[in-house]
Simulated assay, not measured.
Amino acid sequence: MKSFYIANNRVLTHILFWVGYMAVYTGVHTGDDDMMEYFLYEVQRLPGAMLVAYVNMYLLYPRFFVKRQYAAYTIAAIVLLFVSSVICRIITEKWFEPLFFPTTTYREPIFVWYMLFKSMVWFLSPVLFFTLIIKILQQWFRQERRQQQVEKEKLSAELNFLKAQVHPHFLFNTLNNLYALTLQASPAAPTVVLKLSELMSYMLYDSQANLISLKKEVQHVKNYIELEKLRYNDRLEVSMNVSGDIEQVSIAPLLLIPFVENAFKHGVSNETDNVWVTIDIKAWAGWLSIKVENSYNDTLPAAGESADKNGIGLQNVTRRLNLMYPQAHELVIDKEPGRFSVDLKIKMP
């Protein structure tokens, strides 16, 4: 938590506070002739003001005000003002005036009620109220920062959880692909292992960052597509178009792959005829546009319309978008006869 003190220096902050106090009360008499006399009077009242300030901030405020014991705080504050006023009177009559003004003043009783009341109301009450406001604001800032920290930690934990969900879900599908090839003793199996190694390296290391280059994310998608091409052979037609300066754009890792994975899982794997997937990624004028379309069998439920395991990918990425790009993205999922599309636009920070 950041310090509330000027230049992170507690002593300097307190010194500047009391310098400001002296300047304000001495400055009230700017038009008078003898400024030094008024300055000296403020000096002799300084111990009483300091007693009010520190007892209020470090005793009365935490003991009564924070606990909402306002009546007890009010009584204690009045007693504090009275005691401090008496101390100021003692200093004035016993030491200050005899030392600095021995010929122009005369001894008065300590308990001159008018003088005590004037000191309490005019000189000491503002110190009490000002230090009370300081403590209230200080507590409010602490609560706000604590709440922001809690929200930040909660957001971070949820994002990490969602990211962790992507890993086993994606790995499960890829291993199924590899299993099918090994059953057929396909010569493509080693290539699949190599691509899988690259995919796992990306997920285990690169994706741990909050943001990653769009170029790396696109390469991750390409590796996934290569695996799917090995699985579906000539039955699958894939078109992927990338435009814009993708090296200069950073996005949340593993954000694109759920859309592509969804297209293959729900638009390709359940169909026996020739199937197609088109992927368009465009970076332009502070925006990132991703559009994924795939052939779709109308007799099958659309992805994301049910809560079963087949909807995990889109549900996950939708939640991540809401967390990472609030008010800065637009996601449209559309289903038409024979076609399913996902259109995402993100405003880059």
Rank of each mutant, 00 (worst) to 15 (best):
F4V: 10
N9S: 15
I15N: 13
L16W: 13
F17S: 10
V24E: 04
T26Q: 00
G27F: 05
V28N: 01
D32M: 08
D33L: 09
D34E: 06
M35R: 14
M36G: 10
F39S: 09
Y41D: 02
Y41Q: 12
A53K: 01
Y54H: 05
L59G: 07
L60R: 01
Y61L: 03
P62Q: 03
P62C: 03
R63T: 14
R63K: 14
F65K: 02
F65D: 00
K67N: 02
Y70C: 01
A71S: 02
T74C: 08
T74V: 12
A76W: 07
A77F: 03
V79R: 00
I87L: 01
I87C: 03
C88S: 06
R89Y: 00
E93K: 03
E97D: 15
P98Y: 15
F101N: 12
P102G: 06
T104Q: 01
R107C: 08
E108Y: 05
V112Q: 13
Y114Q: 12
Y114D: 10
M115K: 15
L116W: 02
L116D: 03
V121C: 06
F130H: 02
T131Q: 03
T131F: 07
Q139M: 15
R142V: 13
R146W: 12
Q147D: 12
Q149G: 09
V150A: 07
E151R: 11
L155N: 12
N160T: 08
V166A: 05
V166N: 07
H169K: 08
F170T: 13
F170P: 00
F170V: 11
L171R: 02
L171W: 01
L171I: 08
F172P: 13
F172Y: 11
N173E: 11
N177K: 04
N177Q: 11
T182D: 13
A185W: 10
A185I: 14
A189F: 07
T191E: 15
V192I: 00
V193A: 09
Y205G: 03
I212H: 08
I212W: 02
L214T: 03
K215M: 11
K215W: 04
V218E: 12
K222W: 12
R235K: 12
M240R: 13
D245W: 10
I246K: 08
V249P: 14
A252L: 08
P253R: 02
L255Y: 01
L255N: 02
F259E: 06
V260K: 08
V260E: 09
E261R: 06
S269E: 12
N270F: 15
N270W: 08
V277S: 10
T278D: 07
D280I: 04
W284D: 14
G286W: 01
G286H: 03
L288Y: 02
L288V: 05
K291P: 04
K291M: 04
V292N: 03
D298K: 09
G304Y: 02
E305K: 05
E305P: 09
A307W: 13
G311R: 00
N316M: 12
T318H: 08
L321P: 02
N322Y: 06
L323Y: 02
P326H: 08
P337T: 12
R339N: 13
F340M: 14
F340G: 11
L344K: 07
